[in-house]
């Protein structure tokens, strides 16, 4: 087919198959990045841009809307650590605790569900792992982290509310 478009406002235009499961779960997406000055007559988001960075630069703004981010917890002297899933944060049981944690290579991380905030999962931002989505206290999900580097992760249903975390292996 042949079709044209233009945009009077800046931002991303996402080209998708609106059979949306094919987009979010099967990869059907291309993006046009429209650059330019804001045009509030046509589109006014109604609030100041939320891209004001608050977290440390090394996380690229990952923790900007995470209200329980409190620096990187140092657990580099432990072989196995536990991260709570559904801790009180971000307006309910919508946090990982600690949100950011530093471990040594070879450490096993156990995510343990608190049972708060409904169903959660644990998904790596780079797609390297994903847990089941469950909501019950005591459920666990384990990963061993062998190589140095930072892995960001999130809860799919509550990512936009700030339910995000990171494992820093050093």
């Amino acid at each position: 087919m042949i079709a044209t478009l233009h945009s009077p406002v800046p931002g991303l235009i996402k080209i998708v198959d609106h059979a949306l499961t094919r987009v979010g779960r099967k990869g059907a997406l291309a993006v046009i990045d429209v650059q330019g000055d804001p045009n509030p007559d046509v589109f006014d988001p109604g609030q100041e841009s939320s891209s004001q960075a608050e977290g440390p630069a090394e996380f690229d703004g990952w923790f900007d809307n995470v209200d329980n981010y409190d620096g990187v917890a140092d657990r580099t002297d432990e072989d196995e650590i536990t991260v709570q899933v559904g801790s009180q944060a971000n307006g309910g049981g919508f946090g990982f605790s600690p949100a950011a944690v530093a471990v040594s290579p070879g450490t096993t991380v156990t995510w343990e569900w608190t049972g708060e905030g409904g169903s959660h999962d644990v998904q790596a931002d780079d797609g390297s792992f994903a847990s089941e989505m469950v909501g019950d206290a005591g459920h666990t999900f384990k990963r061993a982290f062998d190589d140095t580097g930072t892995t960001k992760y999130y809860c799919m249903p509550h990512k936009t509310m700030g339910m995000k975390g990171a494992i820093v292996v050093k």
């Binding site: 390297s128 666990t140 999900f141 384990k142 580097g149 892995t151 292996v169």
Partner: peptide, 18 residues
């Protein structure tokens, strides 16, 4: 950032009670 830092080893482990 260290996207390759995490390596799958243990996978999902859940005890029967859970």
């Amino acid at each position: 950032m260290g996207a390759a830092g995490a390596t799958a080893v243990a996978g999902c482990v859940s005890a029967p009670p859970a």
